[in-house]
Amino acid sequence: MDKFVTLNKQDLNDFIVKLSRSQPVMAPVARGCKSFVFESVDSAKAIALHYIPTILPPKKYFFPQRETLLTYNKTTPAWDPVLESRKMAIFGVHTCDLAGIQCLNMVMSASPQDNNYNARKEGITIIGLECNNYCDEYASCNVMDNHLPNGGYDLFFTELPDAFMVHVNSNAGERIVNDIGFFSAATPKHTQQLEEMRARKREIFKPEVKAGHKQLRGIFAGAFDSRQWDRIGERCVACGNCTNVCPTCYCFDVRDEINLDFNTGTRGRVWDSCQNEEFAQVAGGENFRKQRGQRQRHRYMRKFNYPVERFSRYFCTGCGRCSRACMAKINLKETIDALAEEKR
């Protein structure tokens, strides 16, 4: 399956309206003064086609912030697993977030596979949207090699002067093209415009840090005892923003909640963060990562070192959310630069 079609810009609204009648459509919309979130839409009017990464990544549809895993009854006794799956299309996913979903797919399908995640994934159709330019100065998608489409979607939209070039990448994608309509075959003019746009992108997108893609792992693997972690720890306030907004963080806490009948209840999971004071605390009070610097180091290692060993892939997508959301303005690009400098 490798096919390109186009959608006229003036048909985008009709496309979204019709798609939203067949299934819920999630898309980036503006929130507050300068933020965006993925939210349910029923037309293209609310959609922000040019947006900086949303507060939370689209991960929340695969792995919600709070989720029920099972219900129980003490007298029966019974434990009933809860597997929720909801058909939906997520429109407007940037390449950085597609990479994030690819990372999580690997984690959640590795044994033992995460049934809740995979049940939700079954129902989701992903429609990507290309960034023709940088979103802002926090992004490092070029050095993470995520500024160009690299799979992980059913359809992928690229904005051209008068139309969207649409890459059809799966059967689910093809079904939408056929069922919803409004698409036409790509013309040579559109193909040329796409090539010109990509050529422009190669001029705009350059490595954002003082290290190459391949060097990153070595830099972090050798930086366990770096002084940088103390410096970052001094500034960190452990608010947990960096991990809660990360598209590849997947730690969660499991909590039982009994109902007021003191007989039935639910077991649920909630996103957890390695930056929280109590994350690495065990019975007896011992805390294995008491210092904020240790916790920050752990976060970075979980993006640039440990997953490379296990999944042969960086778990940083270059979306820049951690730096954007940091209360103390701890900046990923600056951290990489400082570590690269030290290694020299």
């Binding site: 507050g32 608010c239 963060s273």
Partner: peptide
């Protein structure tokens, strides 16, 4: 942990 944790999960600006 900080209120920020729950606030981010609620996706407030």
């Amino acid at each position: 942990y900080a209120v920020c944790v729950e606030c981010k999960l609620n996706e407030n600006e």
